[in-house]
């Protein structure tokens, strides 16, 4: 249910994102999901990979500042209204979502959630939905 997400600090500079992709590629690490958010001065890239420890090592070796965060990963049907059902039950229980991102493929979508209260969020999802990753 909770998985390790890698967050990479990105200077707002051309090519930094590609630097991350290159380092991971060169070490044969595949990105399953990622999102990037940025401010005027810097960006944060949040990504999910299989080999978390190895990815952290190679990124740090390449000079990147990284941190691991626990996030929730769930499956969700890839059809209209499916996500809303999940979010509704979270809202009813006063769970606030700091950020989330998702990617859909064929009939399923994977959703990554970073809620304000991780434990409570997991509990509710377990009660209401069976398909936590």
């Amino acid at each position: 249910m909770t998985i390790k997400q890698i967050t990479v600090f990105l200077e707002n500079k051309t090519g930094r994102l590609n630097d991350v992709a290159k380092v991971l590629g060169a070490n044969n690490i595949n990105m399953l999901a990622f999102c990037i958010a940025e401010t005027v001065d810097f960006g944060l890239m949040r990504l999910i990979v299989h080999e978390v420890d190895k990815a952290v090592d190679v990124l740090r070796d390449a000079g990147f500042a990284v941190i691991l965060t626990d996030v929730i990963a769930i499956h969700c049907d890839n059809r209209p209204g499916a996500l809303s059902k999940i979010l509704e039950s979270l809202a009813e229980n006063d769970i606030f979502i700091e950020y989330m991102y998702a990617f859909a493929q064929s009939e399923r979508a994977d959703v990554i959630i970073n809620p304000n209260d991780l434990e409570k969020c997991v509990r509710i999802l377990e009660e209401k939905h069976s398909d936590i990753l």
């Binding site: 997400q5 967050t7 990479v8 600090f9 958010a37 401010t39 001065d41 810097f42 944060l44 949040r46 740090r60 500042a65 990284v66 941190i67 965060t69 700091e98 970073n114």
Partner: peptide, 16 residues
């Protein structure tokens, strides 16, 4: 930056 100490924007901005 040393290593990242947070996954949270607002904390990084607070540091700045």
């Amino acid at each position: 930056l040393g290593d990242l100490f947070t996954d949270d924007y607002s904390q990084l901005q607070r540091l700045t």
